[in-house]
Structures are given as C-alpha cells and as structure tokens.
C-alpha cells in the first residue's frame, strides 16, 4: 500500500482529504503543519507522496517543500493543496520543488486521478 503524508492545519481538511485517500486504497499519515511534517521526515518517514497546504503556522507549505527536498524527500512527489491561486505562489512552489498545484475544494475522483498520475501503482 502506498503511503501519503498529508499536511494541513485545518482538522476538517485533514479529515476530508484523508477519507478520500483512504477510500482510494492509500495509507495516510497526517501532520498539522510544515514543521511537524519536516520533523517526521527527518525522523525517517518515507512517504510515497506528500500533499501539503500552503498557508500554515510555524512552517508554510512552500518552505516545507524547500526543506524536505534537502532532508531526504529528493524525488518524492509533493503536491500543494491550497485555497491560494496567486501565480506568484505557484511559481514559488514550483521553484521550491513542488510537483503540482491543486486548488481547494477538490473532489475525490479528481484528487485520486492526480495521485495515480504522480505515483505509479497507487
């Protein structure tokens, strides 16, 4: 079973997206912000995919991508899932090493289609 690290400071988002991924046959680990996620990655967590919010306390999503690329998740796909739609932020995420940009709200079918696109065998 492929594992997804889901990062969001909103409990409702975590619950919603986790449910979608679980129903899609994926294992899900959650973190409440970028810092918690980074700590877990540094602690040895090796997910097959990361889905991260952008605006979060302590460590935002784009900074997380930048740090995670240095901390061991060099080739792991990282998707940003956010309410943000500013092109400058998209560009910043791309520069930091993000794999894609998803805008909330997102339906299960669309989310799982993207996940299967970036994680073969998911």
């Amino acid at each position: 079973m492929k594992t997804v690290l889901l990062i969001d400071d909103s409990p409702t988002m975590l619950m919603s997206v986790k449910s979608m991924l679980t129903k899609g046959g994926l294992g899900v680990e959650t973190a409440a912000d970028g810092q918690e996620a980074l700590d877990r990655v540094k602690g040895g967590l090796k997910p097959d995919l990361v889905i991260s919010d952008v605006n979060m306390p302590r460590l935002d999503g784009i900074s997380f991508v930048r740090e995670a690329r240095k901390a061991g998740l060099r080739f792991t796909p990282i998707l940003m899932l956010t309410t943000e739609s500013e092109q400058t932020k998209r560009d910043a995420a791309k520069t930091a090493g993000a794999t894609g940009w998803l805008v909330k709200p997102i339906q299960a079918d669309a989310l799982l289609a993207v996940v299967r696109q970036v994680v073969p065998g998911a």
């Binding site: 998209r90 794999t99 998803l102 805008v103 709200p105 997102i106 339906q107 079918d109 669309a110 696109q117």
Partner: peptide, 30 residues
C-alpha cells in the same frame, strides 16, 4: 475555481492531459 477537476501540466514529466493556462486551472502539474 470552484469547479475542481481540471488537470493541467506546464511541460512536466507527469503525462499531462490538458495544456496549461496556469491561473485558470484548479489542478496543475509542473
């Protein structure tokens, strides 16, 4: 952007389905 589900790719290696017009799409693969 409420109608989520459209996928775009800005010339990435991840098999794009739709050509990109970045700000207008809800799903974009780099």
């Amino acid at each position: 952007h409420g109608s989520a589900g459209r996928v775009s790719s800005a010339g990435a290696s991840h098999a794009p389905e739709v050509a990109a017009t970045a700000p207008a799409v809800a799903i974009e693969l780099f």
